[in-house]
Structures are given as C-alpha cells and as structure tokens.
Amino acid sequence: MLSDYAPAAALLILAVGMSFVILFMSRLLGPYRPTARKLAPYESGMQPYGPAIRRIPVKFYRVAVLFILFDIEIIFFLPWAVIFRDLGVYGLVVMGMFFFILAVGFLYEWKVGGLEWE
C-alpha cells in the first residue's frame, strides 16, 4: 500500500528543508569576496592544467557493467529468501542450480582477468 509510505514523506520534507537552509546559509551569513584565482580549480597551488573532465579509464566502466550483472542476480535471491522454507528441498535444488550458474560465471570472469585492476 502506498499510504504506508506516507509518514516517510514527513521525514523527506524535513530533510529537504534542512539541507536547503544549510546550503544557502553560508552564502547569506558568510563573507563573499571572489577573485579569479580563488575561483580557479584547486590543484595544490599550481596553475590549473587542462580540463579536468576528460576520458575515463575503461576499468571503471567494466566495474559498472559487472555490478549490474551481479546485482540483478543478487536481487533474484531476495524473493526466494522470503519463502524458501515453504519451497523446501525443491527450492534449494532449483536455487542451487542458479547458484551454480552464477558461480561458474563468476569463476570464468575471474579466470579471464575481468576482476584484475590494471
């Protein structure tokens, strides 16, 4: 039931309101004297060199793809976990097969070096 979640809206309103107030607080109360050097990106005191947003190493992308694969498989455990006592041995065997496929995929990925951070 969606109305079960209604009380959480009160907390959400409080959280959004507080972060809004806090966000603009130091702009309102603190000093604001910008200079060109102060507004430049911080690079340990050096002159900023080149753009910061450039091509991203592909390994981060690979982690994201692997995460999506495994997360979907893990989310699949949750509905089974709720009723697995009712399913009994049958459920255990069926889930064991799924588990086996998951493990084989994981070991293959490990073997081909998909988990190496190079």
């Binding site: 130091s26 109360l29 603190g30 000093p31 910008p34 102060k38 507004l39 430049a40 990106p41």
Partner: peptide, 10 residues
Amino acid sequence: IFKEDVTPSS
C-alpha cells in the same frame, strides 16, 4: 557558517 562559500568558476 561564517566561512566563505566558494563556487569554482568552471
């Protein structure tokens, strides 16, 4: 609260 709030120009 009383610190300067800097938003980088870029």
